[in-house]
């Protein structure tokens, strides 16, 4: 083979490799909402990563200064100050990281557990499938908020436990979605050929079947993040979240609630941030669904 041929081959290979992801990206780009969601998501990531460089946790986020309490929003304190004289703007900015971590990781935890159990259920079938699916049904029939409350009560209030408490409740959905997706893929020829060239069943499952059934799982992941953020904020609001004085958004609203009459801005601003974050993930999820779902291809 001459050098020229090899070059064309590698070019066409690269082109082909790009085209699958590139096509999805192309379709996602045309969806204005999805792009907006993606932009907002990146802004939040930047805030979460870099807020600690500009805002000092000990002197600006949690330091108490009662003489400065209940200041309405002004050029000095953009979002006003709370009952302890803490600047709400800094607290809300700093709180971004908690909501993002909770959203991404709690659903990520559910995703990993769900993919493993769901793909095993779908691929092997029979008794294994029955046991996994029935267990998943039982888990799904416990109301999520109540289960989360009980889990946090046992483990104690901290970020990691909150992530776990919110994540557990999403597991059944991922089991269901993965199983359905694996059922669609497992009878295709390339799975048969993987078995034919001597792949073990677990290797076939995780190198051939699961990667080819990923798109509904990715869509579910993105769509679940929004509701996970709301669930975590709800648990925090009820006092089953992070310990004080962590500026988690739900906890901020819970604090502000007591001053609804005299300082309603303490409730308004954290809520607006929750709403924007959830909105971003929801429209991004919608866009991904349109881009990944071949049924809806225009």
């Amino acid at each position: 083979m001459s050098g020229n041929d090899a070059a064309t081959l590698s070019v066409s290979k690269r082109y082909k490799k790009q085209s699958a992801l590139g096509e999805i990206w192309h379709r996602l780009k045309r969806n204005k909402g999805a792009v907006m969601g993606l932009v907002i998501f990146f802004i939040f990531v930047i805030i979460a990563l870099y807020s600690s460089f500009f805002v000092d946790y000990n002197t600006q986020v949690t330091a108490i200064d009662p003489s400065n309490a209940y200041k309405p929003p002004s050029s000095e304190h953009f979002f006003g100050t709370d009952n302890m004289g803490r600047d709400l703007f800094y607290r809300v900015l700093y709180g971004t990281r908690y909501s993002l971590v909770i959203g991404l990781f709690s659903v990520g935890f559910a995703l990993v557990v769900g993919i493993i159990l769901g793909s095993i259920a779908g691929f092997y079938g029979g008794r294994t499938e029955d046991i996994i699916m029935r267990a998943s049904d039982i888990l799904a029939s416990i109301p999520g908020l109540l289960l989360g409350m009980c889990i946090v009560t046992v483990l104690g209030t901290n970020l990691f436990n909150l992530v776990f408490a919110v994540g557990v409740h999403s597991i059944p959905e991922f089991i269901r979605v993965t199983r359905g997706s694996v059922l669609l893929v497992r009878n295709q020829e390339f799975v048969e050929s993987a078995t034919a060239i001597g792949y073990g069943s677990l290797k076939t499952l995780f190198t051939q079947v699961v990667p080819n059934g990923l798109s509904p799982i990715i869509v579910t992941y993105t769509c679940r993040i929004g509701s996970a953020i709301i669930e975590a904020a709800s648990l925090s609001f009820l006092g089953f979240g992070v310990p004080v004085p962590t500026p988690e958004w739900g906890a901020l609203i819970s604090d502000g609630r007591n001053y609804l009459r005299m300082a309603p801005f303490l409730t308004y601003f954290p809520g607006i941030f929750i709403m924007i974050a959830v909105l971003a993930f929801n429209i991004l999820g919608d866009g991904l669904r349109d881009a990944l779902d071949p049924k809806l291809k225009r």
């Binding site: 929004g226 609804l260 909105l279 929801n282």
Partner: peptide, 22 residues
């Protein structure tokens, strides 16, 4: 619908409480 889906219900409740009851 997008905004309605993204609003935490306890926050909406507090807003309504502030506006229509206080």
């Amino acid at each position: 619908t997008l905004i309605g889906m993204s609003m935490p219900s306890f926050w909406l409740g507090l807003l309504l409480l502030r506006w229509f009851s206080l």
